[in-house]
């Protein structure tokens, strides 16, 4: 489908819009649950001292939920900021550069968060 010129330029639908839309909703639903749990949990801690926070993060269910939260949050923000960039950055080079930067940020920060939780949970942070 589409015009021959459009095909040559590689423009037009990538046929992945529905998947993007669906994952945005799926991670949004996950965020509603996980972020609500996270915020309530933080408010219920006696304080945010290192001892209190690391002890909390050492509990298996807390660590698992936090890892799911980190993955879900950074996936969701990657999808959201992608739309943000595609809508507002019209220069092809800048757009490509920002999309690469966004992926590095989302995957990098997500890896930092997940490894940090694991290290605390396995007793490596003192």
């Amino acid at each position: 489908m589409g015009t021959g010129l459009g095909r040559v330029r590689g423009l037009g639908s990538a046929k992945q819009g529905t998947h993007h839309w669906w994952m945005q909703r799926l991670t949004a639903a996950g965020n509603v649950l996980l972020m609500s749990w996270f915020v309530v949990s933080l408010l219920r801690l006696p304080d945010l001292s290192h001892a209190v926070v690391t002890e909390w993060l050492s509990k298996p269910l807390v660590a698992i939920a936090m890892i799911l939260l980190a993955g879900n949050v950074f996936w969701h923000l990657r999808l959201g900021l992608q739309v943000f960039i595609e809508d507002y950055v019209h220069n092809e080079a800048s757009k490509l550069g920002l999309l690469v930067l966004l992926n590095f940020f989302a995957v990098g920060a997500g890896a930092i968060a997940i490894f940090s939780i694991a290290r605390i949970a396995f007793g490596g942070a003192v």
Partner: peptide
């Protein structure tokens, strides 16, 4: 979020 967790792990 990432900074908080990284600093706690450090």
């Amino acid at each position: 979020f990432a900074g908080w967790l990284l600093s706690a792990a450090s």
